[in-house]
């Protein structure tokens, strides 16, 4: 009987963990900022996307490709879903389909409060990507990438930066 309980418990724990790992956490801007800036000694690639944004979905495979190429490099990926909070499950489902490296969070805060802190030049149109080098300096790319090479080369540039 005891064995059965342990066994059930183990299954329960592992399944909860599995579900939990796929879940998308809802963050505000300060939490997102901290998440990125606290990642040291790695190049961080941060992409703002949404399940309903066609150009965003078109470029996601390039990020999957860039993840594969940089598997053994100090490169971390973070995806920021701009979907409505009510569409969190949908975002998680789409995110898992693209086999993307790194994890995904959903940013829920009035953009008028955070866009100017983040990059006053940005008008709020997605997709949007920024790269953070190992020292924490950020380079912004308010655009859609045309090829995976374009993204891979930008990451390479950040990696060789001294």
């Amino acid at each position: 009987m005891r064995q059965l309980i342990v066994f059930t418990l183990a299954i329960l724990v592992s399944t909860t963990f599995k579900v939990y790992s796929q879940e998308i956490r809802i963050v505000n801007y300060d939490q997102l900022d901290k998440l990125v800036s606290s990642t040291k000694d790695s190049v961080v690639v941060v992409n703002f996307w949404a399940t309903t944004c066609k150009p965003c979905l078109e470029e996601l495979p390039y990020f999957a490709e860039a993840g594969k190429v940089n598997k053994n490099e100090p490169v971390k990926f973070l995806f920021v879903s701009m979907d409505f909070t009510s569409k969190k499950e949908k975002a998680a489902e789409v995110f898992s389909k693209y086999n993307l490296p790194g994890k995904c969070v959903l940013l829920s805060e009035n953009p008028n409060n955070w866009i100017n802190k983040f990059n006053p030049q940005w008008g709020g149109d997605i997709p949007y990507t920024f790269l953070q080098d190992k020292k924490g300096n950020r380079t912004h790319y308010p655009k859609t990438f045309a090829t995976s090479e374009e993204l891979i080369n930008l990451i390479k540039k950040e990696l060789i930066k001294q």
Binding site: T52, C53, K54, P55, M82, P111, N112, I115, N116, W122, G123, G124, D125, I126, P127, T144
Partner: peptide, 10 residues
């Protein structure tokens, strides 16, 4: 002047 997230114009 305010900021918002929107779909980029194609």
């Amino acid at each position: 002047e305010t900021k918002a997230i929107g779909c980029g114009i194609k």
